[in-house]
């Protein structure tokens, strides 16, 4: 299989990369049945280029309802890169003649995405204290991208997201009183449509950030990008599930909300609304819980019958304790 994709990639790369002499080391990195990520090397007389292919193979063109689509992702990455947001350079958007499906090829960015390494390894010790602030600055940049340049994206509000989560949860047909409590809390505390509507990354957290000793090098995975309340991204990055044990540092286990907010406000001048951020943190915690249940469902229904998926189903209880800590904290 690897030989076939290398031949396809080589033909594709020669069409847009003058001087490229070949493609090697194609390796599948991750992804499910509908989306693949491949790493490969482009041989070039001026020096090899590390590249990443992100694609939906032919026959998997239909994106899940929530996904922005790979074509939109490529546009967003280009816009982000041009605006100075740490982002991989998009080298090529796949065309039908490439016969590689739908997707794009980008330059590989070296660095780390594994949270436990970022939070604990000595390599990142100097960067860690600065990262919460930097994440705020980057989010301000993302939210500042001009709306008229954006591709077609879904427009979401708190109310529409609550409705989606409720529908997904009820589809599992498994009673979870804590999820019900959270759904009820969200409906009761819905802050209404945001006065400011921006691009929302939608999945801004560990795993989708390439980090080096110098700080954030790239924001990845714009699959869940949409238009909505910019505070959503700030709440999502504070969800306890992304703290990986460093539970007293709300921003991805790296730092404080105050640092995140200060970075955000300094980079753009727009005020952070901490109440809205808290609302979105509750929403995000429930969302991850519902996503864990969804992975269990996919395991059970067959398409991805792996023990990893099955075990993620047993992580939804983590979000229940996190929701109780947010909504019904016990006395000290």
């Amino acid at each position: 299989m690897a030989a076939t994709i290398e031949q396809q990639l080589e033909r594709c790369v020669r069409s847009w990369c003058p001087g490229a002499t070949g493609v090697s080391d194609a390796a599948r990195l991750s992804g499910g049945a509908s989306q693949e990520t491949w790493s490969f090397e482009i041989a070039h007389p001026d020096g090899n280029i590390g590249a990443i292919l992100r694609r939906a193979p032919s026959g998997y063109g239909a994106a899940p309802s929530r996904a922005a689509g790979l074509a939109a992702e490529a546009v967003l990455m280009r816009l982000a890169h041009d605006a100075g947001i740490p982002s991989p350079r998009v080298l090529h958007v796949l065309e039908p003649g490439d016969e590689l499906g739908i997707g794009f090829i980008m330059q590989r960015v070296e660095g780390e995405t594994i949270p436990r390494k970022i939070l604990r390894d000595e390599t990142f010790a100097a960067a860690r204290p600065k990262l919460a602030r930097q994440l705020g600055e980057i989010l301000a940049g993302i939210h500042g991208l001009p709306l008229p340049q954006l591709p077609e994206l879904r427009r979401m509000t708190a109310a529409s997201e609550i409705a989606e989560l409720a529908r997904d949860y009820r589809g599992f047909n498994w009673p979870r009183p804590v999820f019900e409590l959270a759904l009820r809390w969200l409906s009761d505390h819905d802050p209404g449509p945001s006065a400011r509507v921006t691009l929302v990354h939608g999945d801004f957290r560990h795993g989708n950030l390439i980090i080096g000793p110098d700080g954030v090098r790239a924001v990845l995975d714009w699959e869940l990008a949409h238009l909505g309340d910019p505070m959503e991204d700030l709440g999502w990055v504070c969800v306890n599930s992304w703290r990986f044990g460093e539970i007293d540092k709300p921003v991805g286990g790296l730092g404080t909300r105050e640092e995140l907010f200060a970075g955000y406000e300094s980079a753009r001048g727009d005020r952070v609304d901490p109440e809205r951020v808290k609302f979105w943190e509750v929403m995000g915690t429930l969302r991850w819980g519902v996503m864990c249940c969804g992975m269990m469902q996919r395991f059970r229904d067959g398409p991805e019958h792996s023990v990893e998926r099955a075990m993620i189903g047993r992580r939804s209880s983590e979000t229940e304790i996190d929701l109780l800590r947010l909504l019904a904290p016990r006395g000290t």
Binding site: E318, E320, I321
Partner: peptide, 21 residues
């Protein structure tokens, strides 16, 4: 809700930091 959730965590993820706290 607290009691039942702690009972779930005792099975699912007894090393989860929020549970230990």
């Amino acid at each position: 809700l607290w009691k039942t959730t702690l009972a779930k965590l005792a099975v699912d993820q007894p090393n989860y930091a929020a549970y230990k706290r």
